[in-house]
Design a protein around this nucleic acid. Structure first.
Lengths: 225, 225
DNA sequence: ACCTGAACACCGTTCAAGT
DNA sequence: ACCTGAACACCGTTCAAGT
């Protein structure tokens, strides 16, 4: 909720009344996102959360876009990279899980993390970790980068689905299922009808593991050196 | 640019002056997106493109969100699904390419297509095609859906990167490269330094093929029945 | 059936004025 | 150095009034 701005003052707060900080702004933004979703973020709602005027944010953050970038980087910086054991497949799986945990720590912010062009050094930690593991396994720099990009793409796509920002084809309400079934049966798309029960449910843990395992199982077809 | 709204009239256009249609709205929205990007889309800019009042759009479209959904579905509906040859790997590759072509036909709209929860039957065409190919190759309905989701996730992640809506770590301007190199060398992340030249460039055709091939090479590790 | 005027409650951002 | 008042040019959307 934040403090109420008592009375109208101008100029920098004369007393202790601690200053607005970039960190406070990021946390306020994250609070808004967690509570009301990404669409609820505006310079005004974030400022209100701290009890300050929206225009004050511009002293610490590069506009709304810069704020959102900073939030994304802040969230991803929360990743805890597991230390390498030297076992390629195990290590990749562990990094993938860590990436997922960090991304979904704030589910409403996941789209942001997965969708923004991050450039800070902190946000590069998972990238560095994957590359390090691949390099130690003997992959060339070039091949390591290709594999990194493929793995990352799969993670991004899978996690976006999980954050409800990509098609899952899961339909919760049974009315919707029945309606769609009807539509499908006359559609000349038998593959959809056959698989409809499995399309209708989506266990995110299971799908995540499946996708990661598939990528890792592909590695032998693409050996080092 | 669209017609000018000559004079201020009210009520439905009295004459021929053909009516506003849902299709005209979608095309106008796409024109705005192509010309000025996704952020330039507003009910007002789209309406201006046709020479009509923004509020008129509400007679044909369910608000801005509904409009964007409709645009995404419209774009994806433009996909040309190649007919099956019966060769699993070849067919999957062909569908993947068709998906890419359809998605990137309007590059500024790609994020929309890849990021919105699509539900129309038309948008299900690529899904049906992948499932059909997998089923014919002998995969069970359940496994087919898992494979579909993994493949789709990889495509979504890869194409989002291509649409500049996901991290690519490609840095164009050489000043940025030099600056980052400096930052990296002191960062204790040697894997990043070693691979920096390959991270700095990103050939989208190449990365797309690599990712798709990796998925397809994983299929033998995951056989039917 | 469909379009618009008036209206409302919002936006992001700049800039000068204040302390 | 940092905060705000005034101001600007935008938003999405509702609803009644028009034809």
């Amino acid at each position: 909720m934040g403090r109420v701005n008592e009375g109208l003052r101008r100029g920098r707060p004369p007393k202790g009344a601690e200053q607005l900080s970039r960190e406070a702004i990021l946390n306020a933004a994250l609070a808004v996102i967690d509570a009301k979703g990404l669409d609820a973020v505006s310079m005004r709602t974030v400022a209100r959360e701290i009890g300050v005027d929206a225009k004050s944010l511009y002293n610490h953050v590069d506009g709304k876009d810069g704020l959102l970038d900073a939030v994304a980087e802040h969230v991803l910086a929360g990743i805890h990279i597991p230390k390498s054991t030297g076992a390629l497949e195990h290590d990749l799986r562990a990094i993938a899980r860590a990436f997922r945990r960090a991304t979904l720590a704030h589910p409403n912010a996941a789209t942001l993390v997965l969708t923004r062009q991050l450039s800070s050094l902190e946000a590069l930690a998972p990238v560095a970790a994957v590359l390090s593991v691949l390099r130690h396994a003997g992959y060339s720099p070039e091949l390591s980068v290709h594999l990194l990009r493929s793995l990352l793409a799969t993670l991004v796509g899978t996690l976006l689905r999980e954050a409800n920002a990509a098609p899952s084809f899961g339909v919760r309400d049974p009315k919707g299922i029945a309606r769609r079934r009807k539509a499908l049966e006359g559609s000349g798309l038998p593959a959809l009808v056959e698989t409809a029960p499995h399309l209708a449910r989506c266990d995110h843990d299971e799908e995540f593991d499946f996708a990661v395992n598939l990528m890792i199982d592909a590695l032998p077809a693409c050996p080092p050196t």
